[in-house]
Design a protein around this nucleic acid. Structure first.
Lengths: 187, 187
DNA sequence: GTCTATATTATGATAGAC
DNA sequence: GTCTATCATAATATAGAC
């Protein structure tokens, strides 16, 4: 996928590099879509696990959210081909199975909980305990990853023009959802 | 590209749909990479022109920036396959020629000028007249487009969970680059 | 669980007639 | 500027021997 594009993955080439003949692959996968599905699930799982690990042992709330998203971003730029498969759906005929999708719901939940913790810790206002806040953070991360991968391929996370922006962008959550609502008249 | 993925574009299929035979294509393009390059250049040009048109007749500064980026986002979700070709480089063996890249420099310049205008109009602080601010806006737009295309394919701009976020995100520029620097001691 | 052999279909590209 | 014919190569997938 790295060499030919995600869409250029070939079952025959997989067999070639494994040192077996193409028919052998069919003992393990029903079709090339089965290979995509396994790659998709592995990728989702790996991404979830680095995020989970990064969030553990960090103060719950904004710190955990930032640590988790940084880890996810680092994983993505380190696995650009898989990340494209997961996040940009470049193979229209491939639809991941529910099992392959499952880890991504877990990731959403981790982020949603971190936002709720940030609200509870008064790092963010109550509006941050919302799907909207989740979408905003996902836009930040996906934007940074996409720009980094497209414009600075091969650069490690933390270098270049884009990935260093992520902490600054996450800091904007406090501007969107200020912990102390701007003093307004009682309503 | 829509049906088979950007990487699945086939010169033979192009010929088929044009009602000609494959060798005829070679009178117009050196190779399939020449087709990609033409698509890339057309896409960049189209994207530039909708942005330019949207910025004209709008108050220079933040309004023009927002209008231009909205128009660019709308164009992208309306042309998802071409947008993938332009913004995510899904064909590793394709390198756009300098001529095909040229419109994108013009786009950068339009946005940079809008940021400078916003600073001049005191809508944003001086720090916004910078490459960093440009990268931030590009992350916003690319993030919104990427999330919309991957998670809500086919939804028109303005609907769904992501594209309506763009104005809100652009509003954050004022938090990053406050027009009146927060009162600090003389330095 | 591996293989050979094969079916079927596709691709990008070129030579050369018209 | 179109075509026919062709080259060289590749793909996914299946049947069936071992």
């Amino acid at each position: 996928m790295t060499e030919e594009g995600v869409n250029g993955l070939s079952l025959s080439e997989v067999a070639r590099r494994l040192g077996v003949k193409p028919p052998s692959i069919y003992k393990y996968f029903d079709s090339i879509m089965g290979i995509y599905d396994a790659l998709f699930e592995r990728g989702q799982r790996a991404n979830l696990e680095v995020m989970r690990a990064a969030m553990e042992g960090v103060e719950p709330g904004l710190d955990a959210l930032a640590a988790g998203l940084e880890a996810s971003g680092r994983w993505a730029v380190n696995h650009p081909a898989t990340a494209q498969l997961l996040f940009w759906r470049p193979v229209p005929s491939f639809e991941p199975t529910p099992e392959a999708m499952a880890p991504s719901f877990e990731m959403v939940w981790l982020q949603r909980r971190a936002l709720a913790d940030a609200v509870a810790a008064k790092q963010l206002g109550p509006g941050a305990d919302s799907d909207e806040a989740l979408y905003v953070t996902s836009v930040f991360v996906s934007g940074v990853i996409g720009q980094a991968m497209a414009n600075e391929p091969g650069l490690p996370w933390g270098e270049g023009r884009f990935s260093p922006l992520l902490p600054k962008l996450l800091g904007l959550l406090a501007a969107l959802y200020p912990p102390k609502p701007a003093g307004r008249r009682r309503s």
